[in-house]
Design a protein around this nucleic acid. Structure first.
Lengths: 226, 226
DNA sequence: CGCCGACTTGATGCCACTCAAAAATAGTGG
DNA sequence: CCACTATTTTTGAGTGGCATCAAGTCGGCG
């Protein structure tokens, strides 16, 4: 988001410490205890909600550069859990300090708000997918979004990237059953659109897939206010 | 959210002008042109996304006290439209001024962020509903949330409130067809749980309905950071 | 009175779920 | 290195929830 050197220095003054976490260490409660949040610097994580009947809705997969646990600090008793999906590296910071720095450096606050707005836009797009797109379109859209985000984060190419998800993860993110995800993936593969194999995504026909999904990456861009 | 007199005065210094709008006047583009956003002070509005195939996903219904169009200012080319559902009264403000006031009065900034976090929590809850709840549970949850929000806004009781929605609105918000919404409403009515008639909602058995929906209003509360 | 939007109901069909189980892959300890 | 187990992927069969198509009812309004 192109901060100046001075702004990055301010941010560095806030950043607290790097943490390494592995798959079994949830980090939603962790942050809430000491009102800390995180920026994910390496690996994948995901945020989800657990329903009373045991089913799970994954809200988003988080990759390098994304905030983690911001909402938990602004909303009490957040039932939104966050878990690493791979081993991850996060940098922890105090929410108060970050916002304090933001008040001193308006452009920093603007960047924070832009990040929050982007997360909101992503959630809305997921809502649209689940609410109004059929299973193949939804699945296609999912992998296109991931590709765009990963490429932006320097984690691969938008049409070919490593992806540590199981089909159960995809199912819980897309509001489908894992079995049906499997069938949809096969269909997309046989149509020469997308291949998911052994933790790697190959988008075989980017244009056709984008057209199928109605994918427009506009919502992933954020705008600074000041 | 209990601001002090001084804080409210700061807010009043920001507030620009009251506008009256009727059903046919969209207000998403309106705000973006002059980087203004709104607080809805009377009436109902709704935000939605239009898909290429003409279908519509309603993201949220907005009632008195809610922000309108905040995201459009933080995210470029927002494809999120906002429209009045009834005649509405809004107070317009400049986003820059609001945030400027926020930097001077940290508790105000905290309140703004809490509002944003609440909106995010609401969107996530809709995502969960559409992704993992069946049609009756989803519909029940919808009316319970509306009731809670309206009661908080002083617009009725959580178990009995005026509701100017058509079944088409509900369908597009809940990811169902209007026809199926109709059947679900009948079912809920016949089970003595909820009655929707002529623009008014009666929740006949609040506890049973909450249990059916798995409704927990915790996510509607926001927390101040400072 | 005639029209139009919203609501209601019935019939039919498909998309995606569930149940069931085999095959492939990964992880583990001997 | 191999046997053993757990996890993930894959496929089949049957079912059901919700969509779509079709048509009729009700109420408001010009």
């Amino acid at each position: 988001m192109a901060l100046t050197a001075a702004e990055i220095e301010t941010l560095a003054g806030v950043a607290q410490r790097k943490l390494m976490l592995s798959t079994d260490q949830g980090l939603s409660q962790q942050g809430q205890a000491n009102s800390a949040a995180f920026i994910l610097t390496r690996g994948w994580a995901f945020s989800y909600i657990l329903l009373h009947d045991g089913s799970r809705q994954i809200v988003d997969f988080r990759v390098a550069g994304d905030f983690l646990g911001l909402r938990g600090l602004l909303s009490p008793m957040s039932d939104l859990f966050i878990e690493p999906l791979t081993d991850v590296e996060v940098t922890e910071f105090q929410i108060g300090e970050l916002l304090g720095a933001g008040t001193k450096v308006p452009r920093l606050m603007s960047a924070i708000l832009a990040g929050i707005a982007r997360d909101q836009a992503i959630t809305v797009e997921h809502l649209v997918s689940i609410g109004r797109r059929g299973a193949p379109e939804r699945t296609a859209h999912f992998f296109l979004e991931l590709g765009a985000r990963l490429e932006e984060a320097g984690q691969g190419r938008k049409d070919n990237y490593a992806c540590p998800l199981t089909q159960y993860h995809m199912a819980d993110a897309l509001g489908l059953s894992a079995i049906h995800i499997n069938r949809v993936l096969r269909e997309l593969r046989e149509d020469g659109l997308l291949t998911f194999r052994k933790g790697e995504v190959f988008i075989d026909d980017y244009d056709q897939l984008s057209k199928l999904a109605g994918f427009d990456p506009g919502y992933l861009r954020a705008k600074t206010v000041f």
